[in-house]
Design a protein around this nucleic acid. Structure first.
Lengths: 222, 222
DNA sequence: GTAATCCTTACGGAAACCCGTAAAGCGCTA
DNA sequence: TAGCGCTTTACGGGTTTCCGTAAGGATTAC
């Protein structure tokens, strides 16, 4: 079993249970952080000490409070961790259950397992840890079963997300066009952006922009 | 201390910690349910057996799965519980931290304490349980401090929520007007509804309807 | 090198919005 | 019942979205 594991989870009510699982599995060194920044520090420190972590178990969303932080989410923590320790095994333990989000985690951040917090997630987490230890790939908790080859949601790319983000911030077409020109994102003609929004509306079966943003919010895209 | 407590919480990772707190506090009978429906059943059963619960600790949002349920949220569970056992003490333990939502819980559902899940929430929960036992009123975990007399958010009423809901479903002004007429909700002229939306836009500093719905989603109003 | 295709941008008219103003309805009081 | 104040509704013009069509430009096929 893993020797040294880092848990990044802000909610104390949850981290207690996660740590218990690790103890059950006879992990000898278990560290727990409540902020992503701390997590990255610990990973770096462990590397410097030549005693790197074998596994990172992290949540995705972290509450913001008075503290000023660099890394705001599990995604960012993983990205940063990948840079300093690419071979680190990574399990995400989060409430998120949108296929779009999860696929991105596997494909772009190279996580080893995803466990969605739910009614039986502690058992799922235990299994995921074991499977990860046995070098199995793309482990998904059983309540989430979607087709990995389904391209539908993957095709929504960062360009679309940018548009949705700006729309949700009250930008009108013209302002989005200007913003894109400033950031040299192309295409940036109002007409092209309009067309792209149209595609999104068709894809998400939205009646209008308001509806579209509501749906995008529900999907966690913005 | 309380003798008999019911915990309604779907995430097993959290309920473990909650039950531990209750055990520490020497509560002799601790029951735990993962669905609101089960919760209500247990409350009714306990009443019928003349051994009612002293306290209900519940989450607000419950994941939906294959199971068909009547009660979808902690709010609904509390409302139902109030009908069968009005004297039941109630503590809400949720991630929610929007003052609007929380105030409604105190004012309309008569909960005794609100503890927001966070980095130190287990200690907060322990205190809230003790305070509730000592008949203190309107107990709020310390990371949430807002003014209870501040009317601002309370003034957003169900009428506004209805408008926001329909907007977020892609309705245009005219359709909303028609819908309101069907449901005999007044005022229902397109002009009045428009004016109300305008107020909301000013209140939330939104540039347009799209922006407004994005903000409403963030606030958990829809 | 030319044609076909795709992508980007432009244009225009109808629908829906945004916003100010004015009229109509309704309860209250004298 | 007339007058007052408040709420609701109606109206109008400017802006933005919505949606179809088409022109310009780049890439690919042959």
């Amino acid at each position: 079993m893993f020797k040294k594991v880092l848990v990044a989870e802000d909610l104390d009510s949850i981290s207690i249970a996660v740590v218990q699982v690790l103890e059950e599995l006879q992990v000898s060194v278990i560290h727990h952080v409540k902020y992503c920044d701390e997590g990255l520090l610990k990973i770096k420190k462990a590397l410097a000490d030549k005693e790197p972590y074998d596994l990172l178990i992290t949540d995705l969303s972290f509450k913001s409070d008075h503290r000023k932080v660099n890394l705001n989410s599990g995604d960012e923590l993983i990205e940063a961790a990948n840079k300093v320790q690419p071979n680190l095994k990574k399990i995400v333990f989060s409430i998120e259950d949108k296929s779009y989000r999860i696929k991105t985690l596997f494909n772009e951040l190279g996580i080893n397992a995803y466990v969605s917090k739910g009614r039986n997630s502690i058992a799922e987490l235990r299994n995921a840890i074991k499977s990860t230890y046995n070098n199995e790939e793309k482990i998904l908790s059983s309540d989430l079963s979607f087709n990995f080859t389904d391209k539908a949601l993957i095709e929504i790319e960062s360009y679309d997300i940018s548009i949705l983000k700006l729309l949700s911030q009250g930008y009108i077409l013209e302002s989005i066009s200007k913003e894109f020109k400033d950031l040299s994102i192309t295409p940036n003609g109002t007409s092209s952006i309009e067309k792209r929004i149209n595609k999104l509306k068709i894809y998400f079966k939205a009646n209008n922009n308001v509806h579209l943003i509501a749906i995008a919010k529900d999907f966690g895209l913005v």
